[in-house]
Amino acid sequence: MNSIATYNFAYLDEQTKRMIRRAILKAIAVPGYQVPFASREMPMPYGWGTGGVQVTAAIIGPTDVLKVIDQGADDTTNAVSIRAFFAKVANVAVTTHTADATIIQTRHRIPEKTLREGQVLVYQVPIPEPLRFLEPRETETRKMHALEEYGLMHVKLYEDIARHGRIATTYAYPVKVEGRYVMDPSPTPKFDNPKMHMSEALQLFGAGREKRIYAVPPHTEVVSLDFEDHPFEIQHFEEPCALCGATGVYLDEVILDDHGGHMFVCSDTDNCEERRAHGHRGVLAGHALEAAE
């Protein structure tokens, strides 16, 4: 039954981890620059976090505590599977508490609780190139990064304003890192962009299919692009979380029935649970679902 013995610690062999660590070090040295790396086949399909898993596998040690979130939640398929994967192949402690974790692998959210020094946030990235949808040629986008030709990024924002009257990009909102590279913060909601700025934690981004790793080191300037007369804004929610009553957090809309009943709840499940444990109550906490009607 001890099938784990056939795997190296954290699944990847040491040479592969070494190669990924080199890419990570280079990425940290040049904040926002996409470092190519020899991405491996992982025991999961592309799009399920192969990049993030490889980065996590390369940096995790026996004493680390791992948390995995998917859209802010600890209990969705992707999060549960990756957490179980590392519990098995690396035998590390896992947690759902943001404060206890040393490594947090995430898909599309940054936890509400401010990350502190010593923590590492690993993003799963589908398409690392922020210019991709405007310029399909990889040779050309690399040249544009090299020569700092970022006018095209504003063309996208211009199109938003021309069509919608405001910047309608709500996720994967482009940022400029340390005044040099324009970077795609992976499809996190733009609500989370300000959290990346001057963060104490190390932020690593892994794109498995596209074979790129990039990073934002701690205490690095991350500025969201905008126009002078249309400044960057984050999403605002009309009502607080229906379960814990939190305001100023990112909320998900949950449909309750087919009569238009819905509720807004925290996307960060750990934050929501912790608040409820401390006695905070939203309007729907502990009530029957019919109450929504």
Partner: peptide, 9 residues
């Protein structure tokens, strides 16, 4: 925009 204009209007 390529030469640095950042005012939509």
């Amino acid at each position: 925009m390529a030469v640095g204009s950042r005012h939509y209007g």
